[in-house]
Write a protein that binds this DNA or RNA. Structure first.
Lengths: 344, 344
DNA sequence: AAGTAGCATTAAACCGCTTTAACAAAACCT
DNA sequence: AGGTTTTGTTAAAGCGGTTTAATGCTACTT
């Protein structure tokens, strides 16, 4: 590959001049510009990206960081990615998808700063090392999901209104006549689980009822798949407490587990058991029988808003912690109904 | 951000030593290693990615290049991306999604070599500047889809067996009794359209029939959406030639246009018109009424195989042009049947 | 005509790291 | 003991660009 020196020599100018021709940061006479460009073309010269980034301290690359443990790229993530990519496309940024295993990152020889101008962090957990890390190094970030409390005032983030959404759903189920509602929540450490738990409880209180703490279960962060967790915990709980008439599941896969448990127990959905999922999977949900009632999260808008915040932050003189909430909508299909008798 | 010099100073060694501690390319005594690492931690030092890449001439980033004109990120692309990401994850590579608008790329100040070790090129067209470009600069590439003829022997690529697949489908329709089969093909310039066209024709010849050239239409590369093209060309052709009893569409969106045209003309599917699409969209296809018969392309495997080839190429001493074909499967749903009367 | 301002260009310093060549100290032969 | 390896460290020379300060020019004042 030809370097800037080759081009400088070939066109009879200094490398500083060649640099200016390409970066357009300083005016160069038309005549010289043409000579340089011609030489560059014949030598197949292109400025080296890394060298340029090294000194200009900018790459026009944005990062999308996915926690290493979970490379579960479902429709939610894809939809989000779509949103992010669109904004990148429009603004001339490339997108670096950063999904590296923790095992890889923990090795000394792989430690390094990230090669991006800014980053979007997905799916924050309670003690999320990534945030501290970026704050430390001054890397602009936007989080999708609510950051853990200590950082909430320090970083910008985009989120659904998880509290409100969970409350709405719970109200909906209470309105149908349910009072014993099992909540199979996300892993405790994920911030989203706290919010949804709060919404769940508040709806109960608002209705003048006492939420029962033992009806909230959390999926473990690692290990067990969502499906297995849905199946096993629903099976156990439904067997132990015959009063339960409805289940709120965190994801569609988890809901699928619940369906399976219901089948095993001979419970008809929705007549004997209502099932709900925090999901907007247009593939799976309608395929369920009965079709799964859930909520549309608008992952693409989460992506778009996050990237906009990030770009804003890159161009702003001083940082500020902004928050954007993306509204959600209940999608009522066929898996919830008024509670019926649960005879054995 | 602290630099290597700061760490060297703080731990009382030279920067060469610090470098060796982090890169592990040269043995450093345990005692010194610890001292350096401690100093690095307290200074929040991380090696600068760009500086490192500049001299080591490697970034551990792979690129996924999408032709600028088409940022139509559908399920095919997502599935492909999933495959690619999985292999990246396992091998400690980051993925750079390169979807920049052509308008942006054409500006002088934005020309520069790509900051990746290797690249996957999606959706090649007849005169694809990207390939020549990469060959020129010595950038390792793997193409998904068949590269244009002049490059076929020079670059590695992964593809479906488009010729065989198109032949299989056409045989299937001929077997059902169709002889007048309209083929709404991909844009002429896309290499995939030539292959599918060939398969279509060969099936006719094999059955002792003459394929009619005017029954093959190509979507324009830009402009019109697939849906609009499907609708308009089907409407025109079906009106002009009442003998047509089947349509092979390039994509599901195009097939949707055909459905719409059929409805407009009062043609029932599949009784009066069979429709087929080269698509495996699990969202859309079953939603069609009747459900759309198509073909499963296994985009994720395309991605996985492409990335494997790329990694192989990066590690190999000398390059070689390999080819991997990913098999496809007919997915028979409800949109094709034996031809019936097409009374007006 | 002299002085000032503006413009295009260049040489040299620098960005933060890796690597080469040189070297000292310790370990291994006979 | 003397010579040869091995091991650990360093100073200095890049990697391929950008940027700063300096330098000739030409053009504009007055």
């Amino acid at each position: 590959m030809a370097t800037i020196d080759d081009v400088a020599k070939a066109s009879g100018v200094s490398k500083g001049t060649v640099s200016s021709v390409f970066s357009k940061k300083r005016p160069i006479s038309k005549e010289v510009t043409e000579r340089v460009l011609a030489a560059a073309k014949s030598l197949h010269y292109k400025p080296n990206y890394w060298a340029r980034s090294l000194v200009s301290r900018s790459t026009r690359i944005l990062g999308l960081n996915i926690r290493g443990e979970s490379l579960e790229f479902g429709q939610f993530h894809h939809s989000l990615l779509n949103g992010v990519l669109r904004v990148c496309y429009e603004n001339g940024y490339r997108l670096l998808v950063n999904a590296l295993s923790p095992a890889y990152l923990s090795q000394v020889e792989n430690i390094s700063s990230d090669p991006v101008d800014g980053e979007i962090l997905l799916d924050p957990i309670a003690s999320d090392g990534r945030i501290e890390d970026r704050l430390q190094s001054g890397m602009p970030i936007v989080i999708i999901g609510r950051p853990p409390a200590p950082y909430e005032a320090q970083v910008s983030y985009v989120d659904n209104d998880n509290v409100g959404m969970a409350a709405q759903v719970t109200r909906y189920l209470i309105g149908l006549g349910h009072t014993e509602i099992l909540f199979l929540n996300a892993p405790v450490s994920r911030t989203v689980s706290a919010d949804r738990g709060e919404g769940y409880r508040s709806a109960f209180k608002q209705a003048g009822l006492q939420p029962k703490p033992d009806l909230i279960l959390h999926k473990p962060l690692k290990g067990e798949s969502a499906h297995a967790f849905g199946y096993e915990s629903a099976l156990a709980m439904l067997t132990a407490s015959p009063d339960i008439t409805a289940v709120i599941a965190d994801t569609d896969m988890m809901a699928l587990g619940v369906y399976k448990a219901a089948e095993r127990l001979g419970l008809r959905i929705p007549e004997q058991l209502s099932v709900f999922a925090f999901s907007d999977d247009t593939v799976l949900s309608p395929e369920f029988s009965p079709p799964l009632t859930g909520v549309r999260l608008h992952a693409d808008r989460l992506g778009v808003e996050a990237l906009k915040l990030l770009l804003e932050q890159l161009n702003a003189a001083q940082k500020s912690a902004k928050r954007v909430l993306v509204p959600t909508e209940l999608v009522i299909r066929g898996s919830c109904a008024a509670p019926g008798a649960r005879g054995r």
